[in-house]
Simulated scan of single mutants.
Amino acid sequence: MMARVVRLIFTALILFITFDSQAVTAQERTATRDGFVLEENSGKKILVFRPKVSVGAQSTGGIFEPNAEWTEQAKANIEASLLEYQTKLGNEIIVAPEVYGEDAVIVEEHMALFAAIADAVIEYQFFIGNRLPTKKRENKEGVFDWSLGPSVVDLPGADQADYALFIYNKDMYGSTGRKILQVVAILGAGIAVTSGEHKGYAGLVDLKTGDILWLNADGQMGGDVRDQEGSQKRVRQLLEEFPGSDIEEEK
């Protein structure tokens, strides 16, 4: 009896790993606005904002539980990795200034808007069945017309650059209870319950119009951002296919 239970659990885990790997592959996407080209050494300036990073645990019920220690460690790791890869972006980089008060609020609002739009792109454009009528590629070949709006001109440092690079990162690591629920759900009702969520979005935005010119948005990225090696993998994935860069896709 015990051997049968062990075999069932093992089979369920294999099925989940297979399903989860397929989901990761399906979600990873990049897109470029039609007609946009950024050549290497074009003379354009890119304003890089400090990444928005949040890390925590995923409760048994799937609720995000922030972990301050993990978040601070991930912020330090990601910022260090981003500094390393900035030199490979192929154009002049300007680090966004430290912000306080009203300026900090403006940056936070635009970062939240960027994350919300990236979520919408994944949900309604990258997945064919869910596409909004106005965003469907079959309506207009290659259409990618998402925007943060003209308020980007108010961002601190916007008057010094042509484009802005936004990076948003959110990681939920499945708790023990969540992992147990994951197995029980498969063995019982045969329902797939995910354990953990690893969102990573990077976007290049026109600082005159607010148009998103390039986007890399993935709902399940690799690399454990709580350690240095994992954060390097995450940042590399975020910047894959960045226009004008020499950052190659990780094999």
Results as ranks from 00 to 15, higher is better:
60 T>G: 04
15 L>K: 12
208 K>G: 05
117 I>D: 07
199 K>C: 03
20 D>Q: 12
38 L>A: 12
116 A>W: 04
202 A>W: 03
211 D>E: 12
154 D>Y: 07
214 W>A: 07
65 E>S: 01
55 V>I: 07
75 K>Q: 03
161 A>F: 09
217 A>M: 09
240 E>N: 12
236 R>Q: 14
68 A>C: 00
231 S>A: 15
247 I>Q: 15
247 I>F: 14
67 N>D: 11
167 I>Y: 04
59 S>Q: 02
84 E>Y: 07
191 I>L: 14
53 V>W: 01
216 N>W: 01
3 A>H: 14
168 Y>E: 03
65 E>R: 00
16 F>G: 10
83 L>A: 14
135 K>V: 08
86 Q>D: 04
185 A>L: 08
28 E>N: 13
184 V>D: 09
229 E>K: 04
66 P>F: 01
72 E>M: 01
201 Y>V: 03
128 I>K: 06
94 I>M: 15
18 T>Q: 02
170 K>R: 13
218 D>S: 14
102 E>G: 00
1 M>T: 09
84 E>T: 12
72 E>Y: 01
98 E>T: 06
19 F>E: 12
93 I>C: 08
117 I>M: 06
202 A>V: 04
246 D>E: 10
140 K>M: 15
13 L>S: 15
136 K>E: 14
186 I>H: 02
115 A>N: 13
66 P>M: 01
44 K>P: 03
8 L>H: 11
237 Q>E: 15
227 D>V: 02
187 L>A: 08
163 Y>P: 10
43 G>M: 12
183 V>H: 11
217 A>P: 15
220 Q>K: 15
174 G>F: 12
40 E>G: 02
44 K>A: 10
148 L>Q: 09
4 R>S: 13
229 E>Y: 05
105 V>L: 09
178 R>K: 14
153 V>T: 14
207 L>P: 04
119 D>M: 00
104 A>I: 11
171 D>F: 00
184 V>S: 06
107 V>E: 02
34 D>V: 12
158 A>C: 08
22 Q>Y: 06
135 K>F: 13
51 P>R: 03
168 Y>R: 00
225 V>P: 03
150 P>V: 15
194 T>A: 12
93 I>G: 05
224 D>R: 05
166 F>T: 11
235 V>A: 06
138 E>W: 13
184 V>N: 05
234 R>Y: 00
84 E>V: 11
216 N>C: 06
209 T>S: 05
157 G>K: 07
60 T>L: 02
122 I>D: 10
197 E>F: 06
246 D>T: 08
213 L>Q: 07
59 S>I: 13
168 Y>A: 05
67 N>R: 01
82 L>D: 00
44 K>G: 03
47 L>I: 01
104 A>P: 03
93 I>H: 11
94 I>C: 14
142 G>T: 14
47 L>K: 10
125 Q>F: 05
23 A>P: 00
220 Q>W: 10
82 L>N: 01
203 G>L: 04
209 T>Q: 00
